[in-house]
């Protein structure tokens, strides 16, 4: 958490407001969302028909802060997060989109960061496990994972939580059966599934009431 960009750059979101619902959930950073209106950043950051070759400057907006990296076009979003931005909360499992360990949110939607390129995600809002809640606070699903003992080795956990937060928000965790189906892209080889399900369902119940 010492790498939390919100602490380093208080109020320092250089561009764009956000309509992302995670902002609403993460109460501590709501103030940061009061910024200039949204513009098509992709057009600003990556000119159309301009070819990117070799090591190039890329700008990624991660957890509310625009960060600059030097990387080749072939660098995946996952490797950009882990190797260039040192946000190692996002895990590399299979690196082929089969395990869900690298799940992050892009423009509020859950995706696997191993099967998309960093260069393709410029100008988008990227949220990793590090940015799910401000500072040392925990997101309600993180609290529920602890309470329900929803992990053993912990390797799949950040992906499970990122996927679970999106699953609840999508409204796809209203029954056990539905939550299992819509969480099936996240594999847990320790077999903590019953406890993961309990954590996700508990938070889904809270959000229904709230």
């Amino acid at each position: 958490m010492e790498d939390n960009p919100f602490d380093k750059h208080p109020g320092g979101r250089p561009e764009d407001g956000s309509r992302r619902s995670f902002m609403k959930q993460a109460g501590g950073i709501v103030g940061l969302a009061l910024a200039p209106p949204f513009m098509a950043q992709a057009e600003r950051l990556t000119a159309f028909s301009k070819t990117v070759a070799g090591v190039s400057t890329m700008q990624l907006k991660v957890n509310g802060t625009v960060r600059t990296i030097q990387a080749e076009p072939r660098v995946t979003l996952l490797d950009a997060l882990r190797e260039h931005l040192h946000l190692t909360g996002t895990k590399k499992g299979c690196d082929h989109g089969q395990c869900g360990a690298c799940t992050v949110h892009v423009n509020g939607r859950r995706i696997v960061s191993c099967l998309t390129l960093s260069v393709m995600n410029q100008g988008k809002d990227i949220t990793t496990i590090e940015g799910l809640a401000p500072g040392n606070q925990l997101h309600p699903l993180q609290v529920a994972f602890i309470q329900h003992d929803a992990f053993q080795c912990g390797y799949c956990t950040s992906g499970q939580i990122m996927s679970g937060v999106a699953c609840v928000r999508e409204g796809h965790a209203t029954t056990d059966h539905q939550a299992r189906e819509w969480m099936s892209g996240n594999i847990c080889r320790c077999g903590a599934y019953p406890n993961i399900l309990a954590a996700v369902r508990e938070v889904a119940g809270q959000s229904t009431k709230g």
């Binding site: 990556t46 159309f48 028909s49 301009k50 070819t51 990117v52 072939r74 393709m120």
Partner: peptide
């Protein structure tokens, strides 16, 4: 993965 160039189009 081989290296490649990347060109966005609209």
């Amino acid at each position: 993965m081989n290296n490649f160039t990347y060109t966005p189009t609209n």
